[in-house]
Design a protein around this nucleic acid. Structure first.
Length: 889
RNA sequence: GGGCGGCUAGCUCAGUUGGUUAGAGCACUUGCUUUACACGCAAGGGGUCAUAGGUUCGAGUCCUGUGCCGCCCA
């Protein structure tokens, strides 16, 4: 590749011409695949596998950026960094998507049959995978594509099979008639987590249940009157004086006329409704528990599709919502409906298809959760697993302490099939690692496999180890497990993270990672969740086309605190794009300075002799220290902010501008080696976040540099910067700060008095101190403030007393003679104001420093800092007073 | 009903062992074709950190109460 001259480089950074080329270069070099090396420390991130049928959205892009940044950082630290990508078959989500497609053709999955339907899904998967993969690559992710896994691949499927069999044999998986959440649209059971509760306007119906003996009646309140068809009791609180006498008697179920008992139970809330509760064990989870306590029978009144069944008597065949209307009418007719109230309450909806979910008793497979939850709780409590940000630890604990058994069977056709066979001859359940040919109990070949599929999250829960080869003792598993950081969105803490911890410990004996890093959700500018129906979805690829990958990555992560939701809009993307362009142009400038410099010797660690060099080197090393600290503490957004500020406001705004002055005058040591050094270091610091522009700029720099140290072939395998504390230089930083202040004051006066930028100004300075930084930096002040002549005075009495803009910087006094422009009275007013400020500050400082408590209790360095400030403020006050006296003469 | 989070400049947000005069981006005002960058440069305006108490030498930061907004769980 021939090196372009700096002049040939475009003046605006063009991401499109860089990104694909560099990504290919990294792929070809094999940087994304770590080598298993016992001498190295492994760093492992397992990617949360996106749904195979979905497209990546900005949330994925943000998480990918965080995961990539962590991986790139560790790779540069010299770790064996593995970021393992994958895809999730997403059972119910995918099935719903494909069923919708079928519905558009007027078909259901039953028209196709199980096999054809599965083929159809695989077709869809094939199309979708390519898109997801393309999106990921465009995001610049450095994941190891050679290890990419799909949840339905043979290896993870084997892990699913082994886990199921092991848990079954330990008695931790069982089949039973329990109350579950049923989606009539999807015709499948759902776990508690897959139900979304939404506040909905409904009614509360007060219904009379006459006593069987004809002496009165009980009135119950319900939001779902149609379920009374499945009532097998009425419950009241035994402490409730209104109803105590009813316990043990029978009431007559309206409409159906069935006799059902009244039972006493403490769980009944006396102040909800009438205080009497109809008990429907077949269609309500609390009633199920209650019914179990009192031995009440279970009656299920609905078909799986939500229509009423034979138990519903005259309502058989009606849809559940029609049945509700009909029953209410009938109750009214019979005079059994006391009243109907408006009532707002939470109604469960299917997470995937939004239908109202029906609690229903059904025969399903469950995981016994308590024995798994205990160790998973312990590892978080004892710090083996750290959750970032910390506040989610409590949320995790609360949830884990209140878990019900996990319903894992789904009446779907897409996913991992439940590995249980039933023998037609002896009726035994057969659960083996390999598919059985014959019944091990009776030898019969009349075997049928369970029709159901496993909850997707069952396989996801194994992801940290199934991707590395478990249950086999593979080299990958031995080296990379347990993994390091699990980064994911906080909304799947329970769905996924908790189950990974439970099943990771269960299968391997070890917690699957040491850190959980939870990201917030990405919202649109208005703060709304992005969704297709709202039409506010921003495709990551569009954003990349428009602003560039680095800009998107930066915009998605800069300044974000872990776990907090963030909004993204055009202005943030523009700011990020501008930053990429700033870096590009800084690099372009430095490259040009290099071409024109005679000697770049020492660039890799230039000695800091000149005050400006001492300052920038000190400042750079403080930045490096800070960024390392922030990364170690997972404050990625802050780290980016730090780099942004240094690069733009320190390096570009001041060091480069100062360097130009020195280069032009050819006076003193050349700043070019330092320019190269600072930029090269900062690019490495930033690379994990903005991989492309840093690589491109870095390559352009190092291609022009003498080989003073071994140079990596790519910034992504170059070492991450380490701070050199010996470069810290407070004196230089203070000195440059006062020079900057002086320049700012001159520019300020120029703006205030409307003096054209090109017109030089005379500046008189009484430096005050013998070794003033203002004197040392006179050329810089001349150039950046457009000062000519700049004269340093012997004594204050030489300062002009009229018609001058004046200011105090540290111990120095400056005056810009502006006869005829400056109103001396206004000038005096301004200085008096400053004097008053100084006086006020001194009073505060004096009070603090004379407080014995403060002196005794505050740390030494804080006291010392206050003393320094007091000294400086006193000096400033003295100078201001002198100046004012002079002006009033 | 229980829990969590937010309330900081016009807007969006940082601010992690409590320690300068509380920061950034965007927006705003003024002026600039200054040969790296107008995706830029310079100067500037703008905040009693929701509220009431408390702890402390010192509170945006810790504690308690209150108000509004959002989320999670039941």
């Amino acid at each position: 590749m021939t090196l372009e001259t700096p002049q040939q480089l475009p003046s605006a950074y063009d991401p499109a011409s860089v990104e694909q080329r560099l990504y290919q270069k990294w792929l070809d070099a094999g940087y994304f695949t770590p080598t298993i090396d016992p001498a190295k420390r492994p760093f492992v991130v397992i990617q949360p596998p996106p749904n195979v049928t979905g497209e990546l959205h900005l949330g994925h892009a943000q998480r990918a950026t965080v995961e990539d940044a962590l991986t790139r950082w560790h790779r540069m630290l010299g770790d064996a960094a593995l970021w393992l990508p994958g895809l999730d078959h997403a059972g119910i989500a995918t099935q719903v998507v494909v069923e919708r497609e079928l519905a558009a053709e007027g078909l259901t999955r039953h028209d196709l049959g199980r096999e054809k339907f599965q083929e159809r899904v695989w077709d869809w998967v094939g199309k979708s995978r390519g898109r997801i993969s393309e999106q990921h690559r465009r995001l610049g992710v450095s994941c190891d594509w050679s290890r990419e896994v799909f949840t339905l691949d043979p290896r993870p499927s084997r892990a699913v099979r082994h886990t199921f069999v092991n848990l079954y044999r330990k008695g931790l998986i069982y089949r039973g008639e329990r109350i579950i959440n049923w989606c009539p649209r999807c015709a499948t059971a759902l776990s508690d987590l897959e139900v979304e509760h939404r506040e909905t306007d409904g009614n509360l119906y007060y219904i009379h249940y006459p006593l069987a003996n004809g002496n009165g009646r009980l009135t119950v309140a319900t939001t779902r009157p149609e379920t009374l068809l499945g009532d097998t009791g009425v419950a009241v609180n035994p402490e409730d004086p209104r109803y105590a006498a009813f316990i043990g008697k029978d009431v007559v179920l309206p409409v159906l006329g069935r006799r059902i008992p009244v039972v006493g139970d403490e769980a009944v809330e006396t102040d909800f409704g009438t205080g009497a509760l109809k008990v429907t064990p077949g269609h309500d989870p609390t009633d199920f528990d209650l019914g179990e306590r009192h031995g009440l029978p279970i009656v299920t009144v609905m078909h799986p599709n939500g229509a009423m069944n034979a138990e519903a008597g005259p309502y058989e065949g009606l849809d559940r919502f029609q049945a509700r209307i009909q029953i209410v009418e009938d109750l009214q007719r019979d005079g059994l409906l006391e009243l109907v109230e408006d009532h707002r309450h939470a109604v469960g909806h299917c997470q995937r298809c939004d239908q109202v979910v029906e609690p229903m008793v059904s025969k399903q497979w469950f995981v016994r959760i308590a024995p798994l939850a205990k160790p998973a709780l312990d590892v978080v409590r004892d710090g083996t697993v750290r959750i970032v940000p910390e506040r989610f630890t409590r949320i995790y604990e609360n949830w884990m302490e209140n878990l019900r058994d996990w319903c894992i069977s789904r009446q779907l056709w897409w996913g991992h099939r439940i590995p249980v066979w039933y023998c037609g001859a002896c009726d035994q359940e057969i659960v083996e690692y390999e598919d059985p040919d014959a019944c091990p109990h009776c030898g019969s070949r009349d075997l049928t496999q369970d029709e159901d599929m496993l909850d997707t999250w069952f396989s996801s829960g194994l992801w940290t180890h199934s991707t590395l080869g478990w249950p086999d003792e593979t080299e990958d598993l031995g080296y990379f497990y347990p993994t390091s950081v699990m980064e994911t969105a906080h909304d799947i803490l329970f769905f996924w993270v908790a189950r990974m911890i439970m099943l990771g410990i269960e299968n391997t004996g070890k917690a699957p990672f040491h850190t959980v890093f939870l990201s917030g959700l990405i919202r649109d500018v208005e703060g709304a969740k992005m969704s297709k129906t709202r039409g506010n979805v921003l495709d990551p690829l569009d954003a990349i086309d428009q602003y560039g990958c680095d800009a998107l990555r930066f915009a998605l992560t800069v300044g974000n605190a872990p776990g907090n939701d963030a909004r993204l809009g055009a202005s943030k993307l523009e700011a990020a794009r501008n930053f990429a362009n700033k870096i590009w142009n800084a690099a372009r400038y430095v490259a040009r300075a290099m071409e024109e410099a005679d000697d770049l010797t020492g660039w890799s660690d230039p000695p800091a002799v000149h005050l400006e060099d001492r300052w920038i080197k000190s400042s750079l090393n403080r930045l490096v220290a800070r960024v390392n600290r922030q990364l170690e503490d997972y404050q990625l957004g802050e780290a980016e902010q730090s780099i942004y500020e240094f690069l733009w406001s320190e390096f570009c705004d001041w060091y480069i501008e100062a360097a130009k002055v020195r280069i032009r005058s050819a006076d003193g040591p050349s700043p070019v080696p330092m320019l190269v050094h600072v930029l090269e270091t900062t690019l490495r610091l930033l690379h994990p976040f903005m991989p492309f522009v840093t690589e491109e700029a870095w390559s352009n720099l190092v291609a022009r540099v003498p080989r003073e140290r071994e140079l990596a072939p790519s910034i992504m395998v170059a070492p991450y910067p380490v701070a050199d504390a010996s470069a810290f230089d407070d004196a230089a930083e203070d000195a440059i700060a006062s020079v900057r202040e002086a320049i700012r004051l001159v520019r300020n006066a120029r703006a205030e008095f409307r003096i054209p930028p090109a017109q030089p100004l005379e500046l008189l300075v009484d430096p005050g101190a013998p070794q003033s930084a203002l004197e040392a930096e006179a050329p810089l002040i001349r150039a950046l403030a457009r000062v000519e002549p700049l004269r340093f005075l012997e004594g204050r009495d030489q300062l002009p007393t009229t018609g001058a803009a004046t200011a105090v910087v540290g111990g120095a006094v400056m005056a810009i003679p502006l006869e005829g422009l400056v109103d001396i009275g206004a000038e005096r007013m301004r200085l008096s104001g400053e004097l008053a400020d100084a006086q006020q500050a001194l009073e505060r400082l004096g009070a603090r420093l004379s407080d014995a408590q403060f002196l005794e209790k505050a740390p030494e360095e804080v006291v010392e800092r206050e003393r320094d400030r007091q000294r400086a403020t006193e000096e400033r006050k003295a100078r201001l007073q002198e100046l004012l006296t002079q002006l009033s003469e």
